[in-house]
Design a protein around this nucleic acid. Structure first.
Lengths: 156, 156
DNA sequence: GTTGAAAGACTTTAATT
DNA sequence: AATTAAAGTCTTTCAAC
């Protein structure tokens, strides 16, 4: 009956709740309860605990950048020039077309995702970054894995 | 009164709705209406149209991978060996620790995000990929820009 | 396209197992 | 921890502007 070393305390019911919310975060508690095989109050309590445990970090929306007028996406690797790391970080944070940025180990200090309306806009933004960093840019052609949940159970 | 060339049809009210939902996708229509300065029925209609226009692609959750038992994240650049592109794509799709993958231009065919429980698990997964592709892996140390909305208005 | 009111549906609380 | 029932709240519809 003891939990395995990798047990994260997520049982089958929690898994169904997380998957249902990942598919539609605005689902009603009643539907969520049905998906999980519980009554509404039980589902509400499970949900409350998943938030409390910080397993659910946020309820949010996926925006279609193309539908908003940004048909192009790029992944940019950024290596700041000596002494320019913080400056570069602020440029990225202050440029709203950068919708995601990770600070990583290795030659590239940052790997960031950029959405733009046109190649001209991309050029303008990269010219600005290039004053303080070397960059290497790859245009996104497709996304074979869209953001998905990690494996939910371990060692059960 | 004519719209600018870059107008995407998102007015101030839509912007407030999108931002409120990005902050909490489970907010009630009543609260959403308050955030937008509308009545509940009006907010419901705006929301319906944003979904219909596919500007809102999905309501979803952000999971804290660390809280689920995956404290390590990596960004992996993947260059499949000749003839192995589809094989590599399937390996990535079938390995649930890859939570995101983009197909890009340039030397690297894929750029993917990986969550793992340990360096040993990372090693196992990368060994598997390395049979069919060259890889370059960067560990994520921090995320200065968490997933955020692109600029919502253009040329107003 | 927006408002306000009413009917209906959902959520939450509290008592119970 | 889960269930039922009831009270409270929210959502949706519809008539009106």
């Amino acid at each position: 009956m003891s939990a395995s070393p990798n047990d994260n305390g997520i049982d089958d019911i929690d898994q169904r709740i997380l998957q249902a919310l990942a598919d539609n975060a605005r689902i009603s508690l009643k539907e969520l309860a049905q998906a999980a095989g519980l009554s509404s109050p039980s589902a509400a309590e499970r949900l409350r605990r998943l938030e409390e445990r910080r397993i659910i970090a946020a309820f949010t929306i996926d925006i279609d950048a193309a539908a908003l007028g940004y048909p192009l996406q790029a992944i940019v690797r950024v290596r700041p020039l000596p002494g320019q790391l913080h400056v570069v970080q602020h440029i990225i944070q202050d440029t709203p077309q950068f919708v995601e940025c990770d600070k990583v180990t290795g030659d590239d200090c940052f790997i960031a995702r950029l959405v733009v309306a046109s190649m001209a806009e991309l050029d303008t933004i990269l010219d600005k970054v290039a004053e303080k960093a070397e960059t290497s840019t790859s245009m996104v052609k497709a996304s074979p894995v869209k953001r998905r949940l990690p494996p939910l159970s371990r060692g059960r």
